[in-house]
């Protein structure tokens, strides 16, 4: 079995990319299964999706703890341990990262040799005019790396999955061309297909000789203060830099600002403060980029800029 885990941020198309992998495998005659992982996340938050491919029925459910291929849509996720991008990476055959600066990635040396990098964002921007519409390019990268799934199955999967989410027929051709380009750009990984099962060359298989289970926790009674879902440490949400979710950055031009304070009052996340002279200052660590401030500014002092690194 081949397990693919895709990571990105809400809005990247990671769920659809996972579906493209599952569909392409299905069209190529394999058993495919796919699932997105999402909960209370919103646009910009870390999300993941899974795809399983094999010759026979898939005997897995839920999380992919030991992926064979990890596909990362946004390199900034590597700096966020909570996103779990590298969980189980020790035994993965390869990590694909969408980036134009692979040397600068925050990666342990043990994984570096297994990284395959390509700048899908620029290609997607050029092909579709939108940098974040990554489903086709990510799906194509994953399918190409799998090796066993041919191009026509990929293209059919892209047509099916993009149509299902309401992508206009006029856009389908552009997405297909983008997928062809990505398919041509990458080299497939080595895989084994016995006709009964499909696999990538594992880096190191976990020992399977004696199965007694790993070490289990013994959880005892710990008292009501500890054992009740409450948060006793106030103020720690500041430690979570939700600014990484931002697609557009609001930028204030002090030369135009009349210091009316509307952006300060209206920011839904309370991340605008006023300096000693009454000028608004945005806390970019926590500004989520909703641009409400831009909308309410009566003098047009706030303009938007595309985030280059978050996307």
């Amino acid at each position: 079995m081949i397990r693919v885990r895709l990571h990105g941020r809400g809005g990247h198309g990671v769920k659809t990319a996972g579906r493209i992998v599952g569909s392409a495998a299905f069209h190529a005659g394999f058993h495919g299964q796919d699932a997105p992982v999402y909960g209370a996340e919103r646009r910009g938050a870390a999300v993941a999706s899974y795809a399983w491919i094999d010759r026979g029925p898939i005997r897995e459910r839920g999380v992919i703890a030991r992926p064979d291929l990890i596909v990362i849509a946004d390199e900034t996720l590597l700096a966020d341990p909570a996103s779990g991008v590298l969980a189980g990476a020790e035994t993965a055959t390869a990590l694909f990262v969408n980036t134009d600066r692979v040397e600068a990635l925050a990666l342990p040396d043990s994984l570096r040799s297994r990284v395959i990098a390509a700048d899908l964002t620029s290609r997607t921007l050029a092909a579709l005019g939108r940098a974040a519409a990554l489903s086709a390019s990510l799906g194509a990268a994953a399918v190409r790396l799998l090796g066993a799934v041919p191009l026509d199955a990929l293209l059919q999967a892209i047509r099916d999955e993009l149509t299902a989410i309401g992508v206009a027929p006029t856009e389908l051709g552009k997405n297909e061309q983008l997928a062809r380009d990505v398919f041509a750009l990458l080299q497939p990984l080595a895989f084994a297909d016995t006709g009964k099962s499909l696999s990538l060359a594992a880096q190191s298989a976990p020992a399977a000789s004696e199965r007694t289970g790993g070490s289990m926790a013994q959880v005892g009674y710990e008292g009501v203060m500890r054992g009740t879902p409450s948060i006793l440490s106030g103020g720690n949400s500041a430690a979570r830099h939700t600014g990484a979710w931002r697609v557009q950055r609001p930028v204030i031009d002090p030369a135009l600002c009349s210091r009316c304070g509307l952006c300060f009052v209206q920011c839904p996340d309370g991340v605008v403060s006023l300096d000693a002279e009454g000028y608004p200052v945005i806390d970019y660590d926590h500004c989520k980029g909703c641009l409400l401030c831009q909308r309410v500014c009566p003098v047009g002092a706030i303009h938007e800029e595309r985030e280059t690194r978050a996307w």
Partner: peptide
């Protein structure tokens, strides 16, 4: 620990 709950009566053990 992040939620400010110090010291359990029982630590996890294998």
């Amino acid at each position: 620990t992040v939620a400010g709950k110090e010291g359990g009566d029982h630590a996890g053990s294998s």
